[in-house]
Design a protein around this nucleic acid. Sequence first.
DNA 1: ATCAAAAATTGACCATGGTCAATATATAAT
DNA 2: ATTATATATTGACCATGGTCAATTTTTGAT
Lengths: 196, 196
Amino acid sequence: MVKFSAKTGVMNKPIQARTLKTRAKLIDAAKAVVATSGYEGLRVEEVVQRAGVAKGTFFAHFRDKDALMDQLLGAEMDGIFDALDAAPVPDTPEAMADALAPLITFMTSERYVFDVILRYSGAAGVTEIGPIARTFERQFRLFAKWTAQRSDLPPELLAEGIQAFLIQAMSLQFCALHASSQAQDRLVTYLRAWLR
Amino acid sequence: MVKFSAKTGVMNKPIQARTLKTRAKLIDAAKAVVATSGYEGLRVEEVVQRAGVAKGTFFAHFRDKDALMDQLLGAEMDGIFDALDAAPVPDTPEAMADALAPLITFMTSERYVFDVILRYSGAAGVTEIGPIARTFERQFRLFAKWTAQRSDLPPELLAEGIQAFLIQAMSLQFCALHASSQAQDRLVTYLRAWLR
DNA sequence: ATCAAAAATTGACCATGGTCAATATATAAT
DNA sequence: ATTATATATTGACCATGGTCAATTTTTGAT
């Protein structure tokens, strides 16, 4: 017998309660490991030990280690975008950069975090769109909303530009030659030019 | 006794002829592997077998597998920039995107290649600037040259913008939702807006 | 030519992500 | 309640990048 899944909206296999519990144990254990060792320091072995399951179980729940990261990082970013969606639309480059400060802080908290997010920001296939890719769609819609009242250029184009400059500003954060100025300040410079 | 190195310009250990030969064998073997298996398919084990050396020797010459990729990809991109530097300055967004076609083709030839290049595009420390990071400096100088005669915005800012849009255009190439249009076309759209 | 110090090489070994056939558990039909 | 089928779990095992103490080779001084 096949049941309807409210979560995915398609007909698929019913999910056992046991599955949900194991999955929750793994996620909780992973968060605990991240809290003490950071994202880069996470080891699958430690996660399964804390969760009290075998290693194979981990990979029955997540395609690979990156898929777990996708979940963890995506959830964290979703929280940030929840706040951004609720806040008023910033009307100046400075206000925009200020609003984006939490996102910048999180995405640049670890080089590893930044790399994983970039790697998963676009989905290779429609079926494999993950949490991180979805936050980039949210980001795009948010920036389009921020630029909706402008008439010189389409908001979609302006939004993609802001996305590009945001990545650029954060990338240079990790670059020794540009470490002098902060990502937020660089972003203001970019946005002043892009949105003038 | 310590000798002067013409290559690095600083006083350091003399390099044995044997070292250069082994290094060349490793690089040649790596190129052969890439030719048949692609960059993502490269295995260190296969490289050392082809080169006829032990695995430990590989890591005496390269910090890790990524360092080899840095050399290989950096060399390839340097060739592309040699051609770009020699060519006349393009004066329209279309001409710019045309000129960048070889770079786009190479950087998006494999998802793995794109990811490695992005990861090494900025150096974490001044001492560890590698071949890929250097090509990004070349890219920056090239774009600054392309925009040098403009007076509305500093060429350095315009150059960083072009860099940002180039990455953005290529990123969307790998994204299922935007696969419809080509990276080069997207770049033209971006540059028309950025350089108007 | 000999020898001591420095440099390069070796390969057994380790760390860690990932696989899969076997087993255990849950579900649904009778 | 029993049984058959589907699902979840297990852990030994594999793949591959990376380490390092021991060994070999090169170098420079005598």
